[in-house]
């Protein structure tokens, strides 16, 4: 059971109150029309998949509705760091 302390509402939120949003630092090319097919499909389909620390997005969907970033170990599921969306993860 994933439990995250939401950095916006300060509550411990349980897996069933949360929505997972995949990898955290996805860059949508700023000029889509300029982006090559390769760059665009990279953005659409290719994600990091580390066995270990993963930077990811979660939403406090059952609570305050805010998206934030989490560093989580994909093997132990230990939560290493939680930050608001405007910050970068360091873990």
């Amino acid at each position: 059971m994933i439990v995250l302390n939401c950095p916006y509402c300060g509550q411990d939120r349980h897996e069933e109150e949360l929505t997972y949003g995949g990898e955290a630092e996805i860059i949508r090319p700023l000029e889509p029309e300029e982006a090559s097919d390769e760059l665009w499909t990279e953005y659409l389909y290719f994600r990091t998949n580390p066995k270990g620390t993963h930077h990811e997005q979660w939403c406090c969907s059952g609570g305050c509705g805010q998206w934030f970033k989490v560093a989580r170990d994909t093997v132990s599921h230990d939560i290493l760091e939680v930050v608001t969306f405007d910050k970068r993860l360091s873990a």
Binding site: Y20, N49, E56, T74, S76
Partner: peptide, 8 residues
């Protein structure tokens, strides 16, 4: 599936 990435 469990929806988040996992090697657990």
């Amino acid at each position: 599936l469990d929806l988040y990435h996992s090697y657990g």
